[in-house]
Amino acid sequence: MPIEVASKRRKVQRPDAVVIDVTSRGPDPWVRFSPFYPHGDIPVPLSPGVTSASVEGLWQALKVFENADVDPSKLGVTSMKGLKRTVRRFGPVRGHRAGLASDRLLDYRTARQEIYSPAYRWVLENRLRDELARLHELAESSDVVLLDYTTNGDVEDLRTPLSHAALIAEHLRRPLRI
């Protein structure tokens, strides 16, 4: 299936392809693929019974800094704004809690594997079925380029943030489940 991931920051020269912005600044319905999008009731990995409005909300809520622990208030943010928690404000990142009530800190790689990827996959499988089916249809008749701010699709490559567009592309390359 011809699906590529490209940087939104660069001019994409693909007149032969359908180019789709899946960032928080993308058009409807594609904005729904943004990790910032407030789908609601997303199970927070490693936190039984706890849900989040968005994937980014749960990722930021579980982040632990040198000068700040978890921030459960991020779980309820539905505006797609004010979610980021930064090193500038809170000091170096120590890791992500293995659940809101846990004492265990996960390193970046493990947090990607046990928190971010499962949460985003859950959204793809439970909140974005129609949009995924539409992308699948588009990819059957032409090349599709998904725009994201980062293009890293390797959970093991910790040099740059993980691209949710790459996770979408990987998901679409699997056999379609109905």
Rank of each mutant, 00 (worst) to 15 (best):
V77A: 12
W122M: 01
Q113F: 07
V93G: 09
D103N: 12
G99N: 13
V87N: 12
L83C: 05
S117E: 15
T86K: 08
A98M: 05
S117D: 15
R104E: 15
W122V: 02
P72T: 01
R89Q: 13
Y120P: 00
V87R: 04
R121T: 15
K74Q: 13
T110C: 04
E114F: 07
D103P: 10
R97L: 12
G99C: 14
P118K: 05
R112M: 15
P92E: 10
A98I: 07
K74S: 11
A101E: 14
V123N: 06
G76D: 07
T78F: 10
R94Q: 06
H96S: 12
R88F: 08
L75K: 01
I115L: 11
I115C: 03
D69W: 08
L105H: 00
V87H: 11
G91V: 05
R112A: 14
K84H: 12
L106E: 08
E56R: 00
G57C: 07
R89E: 14
Y108N: 13
Q60R: 10
G95L: 06
V123A: 04
L58A: 07
Y108C: 12
G99E: 13
T86Q: 10
G57Y: 01
H96P: 05
G91D: 09
F65Y: 00
G99L: 11
A98L: 10
W59F: 05
Y108Q: 15
H96M: 04
